[in-house]
Design a protein around this nucleic acid. Structure first.
Lengths: 250, 250
DNA sequence: CGCGCTCTTGACGAACATCAAGCTCCGTGG
DNA sequence: CCACGGAGCTTGATGTTCGTCAAGAGCGCG
C-alpha cells in the first residue's frame, strides 16, 4: 500500500478515531495498527444491503459516510430496525466473533464503507490488548443503545420514543462534528422511522406533526433542527449517560 | 487460596464453562486463568440489588445460581427489564469497560454470585487473547438477545412476546442442563414478567391464561412445562439462531 | 407526461392500559 | 387456634393509544 493510500485511510478513519477518543486515549501506534488493519473501500447505494441475515462475513464494515441501519424481517413481512449507524460506527464488528449474522444491515443513504478483514482483527487482538478492549467497548456501546431503545419500546409513548431518537441522533452526530445548533442531517423516511420505533407509518406522521406544532422541532428536506432542547429531553426522558461520553482509561 | 477453594471455584464456574464451550473450545490453561481471576463469593436475597444505576463497580459478577434481571426505572416510576440472567451468565461484564452502570441489576430469587475484580480481567486481556475474545463474545450474546427482544417489542403481540420469552428461557436453561421435557424453573412474578415484556400485569395474566387454554404450556409453582414446542415456536416466531449455539473457532 | 415514492389526513376497529375488586396462599402474631 | 395482613393471581368494566384501511396531494425521475 502506498504512503498516499495510508494517509487517505487515516483520513477516512477520522470519525472512528474521534468516537473512540471520546471514551479513552488512543495511542499513535494504535491508530497506526488500525490503519494497517483496514482493507478495501466499498460503496453502497441507498436501499442496498451491506450484509444479510445468515451471511458469514469474513470482514467487518466501518461506516465512513452515509447512514445505515440494522434490521430484521419477520415471517409476516414486518420489519424492525434495531440500530442506526453513521460515520465512525462499525456496523458488524460482532460478526468478527458471532460469525453468523442474525440480522441484516441496509444502507439508508449512499454509503462509503471501509472494511477490516477478520484475520487482521485477530492480529490486533493478539498484539494490542488495550486497543482490543476499545473495540470491545464499541460493541458494548451498541448494547447500551439497544437497551435504551428497549426501555423506550416497553415504557414510552410513541411521541416520547420519537423525541428520544431525535435526541440520541443529535447527540451522536454532534460527537463526530456532524451537528450544530442549525440542525443535523437525518435522511430517514417516515416508513423507516416507523420500523425503528415499532409503530405504524401513519402514526409516525401524526407524532411528527405534534412535535412540530409544539414548537419542539423543525424537520424538512432531511434536516432536523431541535428548537427547544431542554423541553424535548424532558418529554423524551432523554439522559445521555447511556452513551458513555467520558474519556477515561478503559 | 488453598487447593480446596480452587477446586470449589472451578465447580461454581461449571455453568459458565458450559456456556462458553457451547460456542468454542476452552483450553485447560484458559479455565485455570479464569479460576485464578475469580474473587469473592457473594449471596443476595430475592429483591436485593446487585448493582445500581450510576455505580462504578470495581469487579464484575457472574451468576452461579438463582435468577437476576437488568432493569431501568423511569421518572414516572415505571420499570423496564432488559435482560434475564441465570447460572453461567455475567450480569455486568460491561462495567469492566463501560465503567459506569447505566442500569441496575436485581436478584429475582436468592442468588449466589462469584466476582471477578477488574484488575484481574485486565490481566486476562493482556495475557490470553483468545479467552478475551470469548469474554467479548459473551457480551455480544447479550447484545443479540437485546436485539431479539427489541424486535419482539416492536413487532410482536403480547402473546407472541410471552411465548418467545418462554422459548428463549427454555433454550438457555437447557443449554446449561437446567431444563428437560418435564419443564424448567421460571421463578418470576407476573408483575416482573410485565416489566420484561413491556405490558401491564393485568394483560400478562390474560395472555398466560390463553397460552394455558390453548394447551401450549403448563405453569405452576414457578415451573413451566412446554406442552407443544413446535406450535409455541411457530406462534412466537422463535428461531434460536440469535443464540449462536454453535461450537467453532472464534 | 405519467409513474412511483413519500407524506398527509380521515374514519373505524383492535390491542392493550387503567381502575377496581375479590380471590388464594402463606407467614406472623395474639 | 384463628385473626390479620401482604403479596401475588384473577376477573370485569371502561378508556386510550395506536393499527388498519382508504384516498388524495406533492414531488422527483425517467
Amino acid at each position: 500500500m502506498s504512503i498516499n493510500t495510508i494517509v487517505e485511510v487515516r483520513e477516512l478513519l477520522q470519525p472512528f478515531f474521534s468516537k473512540m477518543q471520546l471514551r479513552d486515549a488512543l495511542g499513535p501506534e494504535e491508530q497506526e495498527a488500525l490503519a494497517q488493519a483496514a482493507g478495501d473501500r466499498l460503496l453502497f447505494t441507498a436501499g442496498e444491503d451491506l450484509v444479510r441475515e445468515g451471511d458469514r462475513p469474513v470482514r467487518s464494515m466501518l461506516v465512513v459516510s452515509g447512514f445505515c441501519c440494522r434490521y430484521r424481517l419477520l415471517p409476516e413481512g414486518q420489519r424492525q430496525i434495531t440500530a442506526l449507524h453513521m460515520a465512525g460506527d462499525f456496523v458488524d464488528l460482532h460478526s468478527f466473533l458471532l460469525k453468523e449474522m442474525d440480522h441484516a444491515v441496509g444502507a439508508m443513504t449512499n454509503c462509503t464503507i471501509i472494511t477490516f478483514p477478520h484475520p487482521n482483527l485477530v492480529k490486533v487482538s493478539e498484539q494490542f490488548p488495550h486497543l482490543t478492549r476499545l473495540l470491545w467497548l464499541m460493541t458494548l456501546l451498541d448494547g447500551s443503545m439497544n437497551r435504551e431503545w428497549l426501555v423506550g419500546m416497553g415504557r414510552l409513548s410513541a411521541q416520547q420514543r420519537t423525541g428520544h431518537l431525535l435526541c440520541e441522533t443529535y447527540t451522536r452526530l454532534r460527537a463526530i462534528g456532524m451537528a450544530d445548533d442549525h440542525g443535523f442531517p437525518f435522511p430517514i423516511t417516515q416508513t423507516s422511522l416507523a420500523d425503528a420505533l415499532g409503530i405504524s407509518t401513519v402514526h409516525v406522521n401524526r407524532v411528527i406533526q405534534e412535535l412540530r406544532q409544539s414548537g419542539l422541532i423543525v424537520w424538512e428536506n432531511g434536516v432536523v433542527r431541535i428548537l427547544d432542547w431542554p423541553r424535548l429531553m424532558e418529554l423524551s426522558s432523554f439522559d445521555d449517560r447511556y452513551l458513555h461520553l467520558v474519556q477515561e482509561p478503559r
